[in-house]
Design a protein around this nucleic acid. Structure first.
Lengths: 201, 201
DNA sequence: ATGATTCTTTATCGATCGATCAAGAATTGA
DNA sequence: TCAATTCTTGATCGATCGATAAAGAATCAT
C-alpha cells in the first residue's frame, strides 16, 4: 500500500529473464547480462525479484507454465498412453527447435555444470527432471492397467526410455540438429511403444 | 633445454583436472578449485598447461582417449552394427554410473550452459557430439550396405535415435537414476534395431 | 499539505574470476 | 665454475561476480 508505482512491466521483464536463462543457463547469465537484457538497473531487478536465484526460479516456473509444459499438458489432455507419449515427444521437438527462440529444454540445460555454491539450483532442476520421468512411468503403468499395453510390459523401463530420449532431444536441438531429423528419430522411437500395444484397444 | 626439472607429475595432474572438469564442468571449476584439487600453485598450472581453457581441452582429450572412448572402441572392434550399438550403450551406462567416479558424460555435461566468452568451448564440445552422431549414422549405413540391416532402413534416423538416447543417458546418470534402470531402458531401445535386422545374417 | 512508503538512480561494496610479475631455487651445458 | 634456462613461490593484477547503501523522485493515506 502506498509508495511510488513500478515503472516497468514485471511480467515482461520476467519473460526476458526466462529467455536469457534459457539461452545461457543460470551461471552463464550474469547480472550485467540481465541488466542489459531487461533494460533495468540492478537495484530495480533486486527490488522486484529478490535475488538472481529467486529470479531464475521464477523464470523456470514461467517456462514450465508455458513452453516447457508440453509433458504436463499431454498427460492431462490425451486419452491414451500412446497419444501422450507421441504428443509429448513431438511438442518437445517443436519447442526445442522453434526458430528465433532459445533452443533445447531450459530444465535440461540451464544448470548442468554449476559451481559448488549453486548446487541447490542444480538439484532443484534435477528433481524436476526426475518428477517428469516418474509421471511418464506412472502414465505407462496406467496404460497397462487400462489394458492399452500388454500386461507383461515393463512400464518403468519404457518410461525411463522415453524420458531419456526427451532429455537427449534437448542436447541434439541445442547442437543444431534440424527438427526434421528429430521428428524422424521419434518415429523410430514410437515403434517400441507400438510393439507393446494391445490390438483393437 | 636445461633448466630446473618439474617437481610434479604432469599426467597425474591432468587426470585430477579431468575429474574436476568432468564433475563440475568448465565454468563450474574455478582456478582456485584446480589449485586445491591438483595441489599446485596457479603459476605452476599455467606453466605446465598454458591456460584454463588449454587445460580443459587436454582434459577432454584424455577423457576421450580413455573413459569416454567407448563409442570409438565399439565402432573399431565390434563386427556388426548390432553389436556396436549395444556395446556402446552398455558401456556408456557403465562409464556414466561408475561408483566413486564423476557421473554422466564429460562431453555432454561439461559445457552446456556457458557465458558468452566461452562459446568456443561450448561449440567445440558440440562438434564432438555431432561427430559421434555422424559416426554412428555411418556405421548403420554400412550395416545396410552389408545386408545386416533391411534395405529400406532409415539409417540416419536410427543413428540419430541412438545418439540422442546416449546423450539422454548422460542426463539421467547425473540425475542419479541407477544403472540397472538405465540398462533396462537400453533393452527396450535395442528392439528398434532388432526389428530392422535381416534374419540369419 | 504532509508523512509514510515505494521505486529509481548513482555509485560502489567485498569477493572471486582468470592470469601474471618478480624473485629465489634448481638444473643443464660450456 | 658460471651463465643460461626452467621451475617454484608469494604477492598481486585488473576485471567481473552478485548484491547493496544512500539519496532523490513519485505515489498514497490522512
Amino acid at each position: 500500500m502506498a509508495g511510488r508505482p513500478r515503472e516497468f512491466d514485471r511480467d515482461q521483464a520476467l519473460e526476458k529473464a526466462r529467455d536469457a536463462f534459457w539461452t545461457r543457463g543460470y551461471e552463464g547469465t550474469s547480472m550485467a547480462d540481465l541488466v542489459s537484457v531487461l533494460g533495468l538497473a540492478s537495484p530495480r531487478i533486486y527490488a522486484a525479484f529478490g535475488s538472481k536465484e529467486d529470479l531464475f526460479r521464477e523464470a523456470v516456473a514461467l517456462y514450465e507454465a508455458n513452453e516447457g509444459g508440453f509433458a504436463t499438458r499431454a498427460l492431462a489432455e490425451e486419452p491414451t498412453a500412446r497419444r501422450v507419449i507421441e504428443r509429448m515427444l513431438r511438442e518437445a521437438v517443436e519447442t526445442y527447435t522453434r526458430p528465433g527462440r532459445p533452443q533445447g529444454c531450459m530444465v535440461v540445460s540451464a544448470a548442468t555444470n554449476c559451481a559448488v555454491e549453486n548446487d541447490s539450483v542444480l538439484h532443484w532442476l534435477a528433481e524436476h527432471r526426475l518428477a517428469r520421468t516418474a509421471s511418464i512411468v506412472e502414465r505407462l503403468k496406467q496404460g497397462v492397467r487400462d489394458g492399452e499395453l500388454k500386461p507383461d510390459t515393463d512400464a518403468e523401463a519404457l518410461g525411463d526410455y522415453y524420458a531419456t530420449l526427451m532429455h537427449g532431444l534437448s542436447v541434439q536441438a541445442r547442437d543444431g540438429v534440424p527438427k526434421e531429423r528429430l521428428h524422424a528419430l521419434i518415429t523410430v522411437a514410437m515403434q517400441s511403444l507400438d510393439a507393446r500395444l494391445v490390438q483393437g484397444f
